[in-house]
Structure formats: C-alpha cells, structure tokens
Computed example of a mutant assay.
Amino acid sequence: MTGVRRFLFLNGLSLAFGGLFLASLVGQAFAGVADVNDHRLSEGLEPISLARFVTSSSFAVDVMENWQSEYLQFFLYVFATVWLVQLGSAESKEPHKVGRESDEQQSLGKHLRKDSPAWARAGGVRTALFSRSLGVVMGTLFLLTWAASSVAGWSAFNNEQLMGREDPVSWVGYLGQAEFWNRTLQNWQSEMLAVGSMAIFSVYLRQRGSPESKPVGAAHHDTGQTG
C-alpha cells in the first residue's frame, strides 16, 4: 500500500466526514441563497449574490446554531459518561468503573506504556490538563460557537427591527428575547434526544462490525462492550 493510500485508509473516518461536512455546508449555501432570492423576487427586490449571502448574519446564525448544539452534545456526553451509566449500553462504561478510574485503568503513573503520549508522562499540571483535554476543548468550542451564534442572531434580529422601523436592541437585550431561546432550545433538544436515543437503542439493537454497537451475540445487559 502506497503512502497516500495508507494515509487515506488510516484516516478514512475523519476524511469522509470532513468531506461530507464541506459538501453539506456548500449545499446549504446554495440552497439558502436560492430560498432567499425566491422570497426577494416575490417581493419585487433584486436577488443577492452567493458571496453576499454567505457573509450575511442570517447564514452565520443558521450555521453557528447547529455547530454550538453539536459541541454542547459532545461536551455534556464526555463529562456525563464519567459518572453516569446505562446498563446494557455500548455507549456507557461498566457500572463498576463509574468515576475517574484508577491510574492502572487509565495507564498513568507506574502503569504508563511505552507509547503513552508525552503529556501523560509529564506529570503535574500538564498531565492533569491532558487528562481533561477532550472535555475542555469541547466545552470551549461550545462557548465560542454559542457566542458567535448569539452575535450573528443579534445582528439578524436588529436588521429585521430596522426594516420594520423599530428600535434595535443591545446584545444583552437580544439574549433576553424569546426568539433567541426558541431557536437555541430547538437545536439543544434535538441533540439531547439523539444522544439519549443512541444510549438506549444500543442496549437492544445491534450493528454488526460497528464499534458503536455491541457484538451481535452479546446479552442485552452486557455494558460497555463494542463489536
């Protein structure tokens, strides 16, 4: 296997979803500008360009709202699965492993492996930070995308206010608007439903060969096993 083919094979999952993400984002941009222009033409207005649409606050708020709800989902899931279990779920730890687990279970201290990451070997603050790095990064990305979605939504809201000859509101004022929380909670509830469904469905359902599923022949009460 050549170097390029080996790279593609070993990184297929991230590359495939990265490609699907970009294709979906481009598709959203084209579909979005077409939808906006349909409405503008029906109102007797000139259509806008794709470039103007993708740099608009309306496009930004739609994108950021989706991103922040996804990062919220993973942030909560990473931390919740430290302490919470679902008996029989492939998405859960085994009940006796609840908590931060021992150094032996986490391959730390005297249980380090030859190929353990450098920051796992470093000890002190670096190891403490590295041991929480996934949750920290997911939480930070959630906060950044939430802030971006609120600013974009604020801009879009004020554009509508001005078009309706009403006074614009401050950013803090926008955070108190029902529209902001209606849009935000719509996204959040769908993510919580998806995570909860996956946790319970994996107790009773199987997908042969998937690491997100238990082995087909595993008992329903087997917890934390993957195929």
Rank of each mutant, 00 (worst) to 15 (best):
D115I: 04
G124D: 13
S131Q: 14
D35W: 09
V82R: 05
L134T: 14
F130A: 13
D35N: 09
G135W: 11
S133F: 14
K110P: 06
G135T: 08
H39A: 07
D38R: 06
Q86L: 02
L72S: 12
G124H: 10
L41P: 01
A118S: 12
L141S: 05
L108P: 00
E46L: 07
Q106S: 05
V61P: 00
V82C: 08
G139Y: 03
R113F: 10
F75Y: 15
Y77W: 13
A118C: 10
S57M: 02
P95H: 01
S133V: 10
V137Y: 09
V85R: 01
D62R: 04
S89F: 09
L50H: 02
P117H: 11
W83I: 03
W83F: 14
P95T: 01
Y71D: 03
F53W: 01
P47T: 00
S56H: 01
L129F: 15
E46A: 09
S89H: 12
M138F: 13
L129Q: 14
H96G: 08
N37C: 01
V125T: 15
K97L: 11
F30Y: 06
S42G: 11
V33Q: 02
A122H: 12
T81E: 12
F75I: 06
L108M: 08
F59S: 01
S133Q: 11
W119P: 05
S49E: 11
A31P: 11
A122S: 14
K110G: 10
R100C: 04
T145P: 02
Y77M: 09
D115W: 09
V54D: 10
V63L: 13
R126C: 13
W146Y: 14
S102G: 07
E65S: 11
Q73R: 10
H96F: 12
L129R: 12
S92C: 00
R100L: 03
N37G: 00
L144Q: 02
L134M: 14
V36G: 03
D38W: 03
P47R: 00
V82A: 08
A122E: 15
S107V: 06
S107A: 07
K110D: 13
V54W: 03
N66H: 11
S57Q: 02
V63F: 13
S89P: 14
K97W: 11
Y77V: 09
